[in-house]
Amino acid sequence: MAFATVKVLLTALIVIAISEVAKRSTAIGGIIASLPLTSLLAIVWLYGETGDTNRIARLSLSIFWYVLPSLVLFIVLSVLLAHGMSFWPSLGLSIGATFLAYLVMSAMLARFGVSI
């Protein structure tokens, strides 16, 4: 239970730090947010709990393939907001487009026999 508490607190602190930095500089906030902190935390937590490097390798490869469709969220959100759409509908449509991109990526990986 203590390990889970540490995980939650550290993860929350990172998210809060990013949002606080972004209030002062969106560029620096963007750089920090673009770092694979969530992935690194997940890898460290998984290794700490299992010690299974094969599982870490598979997770790392899965993260690689699914980072690509996740970029759709940022592109769509930016375009919609730049064209005057309000925040919440833009965010909702961006999430929907990202979900579709994940489905397409999953289908493409399966089609080409990529097992993750």
Rank of each mutant, 00 (worst) to 15 (best):
I32Q: 10
A97S: 13
T50F: 05
K23P: 05
S19K: 13
W88D: 01
S34N: 12
G113T: 07
S39F: 00
A17M: 04
S60G: 14
T53S: 11
I18W: 04
A12K: 01
H83W: 04
T98G: 15
F99K: 04
L73A: 07
T5N: 09
L93A: 08
R24T: 03
A17G: 15
K23A: 07
L81W: 00
L103F: 07
S62K: 05
I14C: 15
R58K: 08
S60Y: 09
R55V: 12
Y102F: 13
K7T: 03
G29C: 09
V15C: 14
T50K: 13
V21G: 10
F99H: 02
L61V: 13
A17F: 04
A57G: 08
I28P: 00
Y102K: 07
S19W: 10
L100P: 06
R58H: 10
L81T: 10
I32F: 14
V8P: 11
L9H: 10
Y47G: 05
A110R: 09
G84V: 04
S70H: 10
F3K: 14
A22I: 01
R24D: 06
A110P: 00
P89S: 12
S60L: 10
A82R: 05
Y66V: 01
L93N: 01
G96V: 11
A33G: 13
S115G: 01
T5G: 08
V15Q: 12
S39Y: 01
T50M: 11
A82K: 07
S86M: 07
L46M: 10
M105D: 10
V44I: 15
I116S: 08
V15F: 03
I31G: 10
S106G: 14
V104S: 10
I116F: 14
Y66K: 02
S60W: 03
A12H: 05
P89V: 08
Y66H: 12
V6T: 09
L35V: 09
G51S: 05
I28W: 06
L80F: 15
F87H: 06
I56F: 04
L93Y: 14
A4K: 06
G30C: 04
E49N: 12
M108E: 00
R111P: 00
V72F: 12
F99T: 11
I32R: 06
V79G: 02
A110W: 00
I95W: 12
L73G: 02
M108T: 09
E20W: 14
G96I: 12
G84R: 01
L35W: 02
L9C: 13
L73R: 01
G92P: 03
S94D: 02
G51R: 12
L73C: 06
F64Y: 05
L103Y: 00
A82W: 04
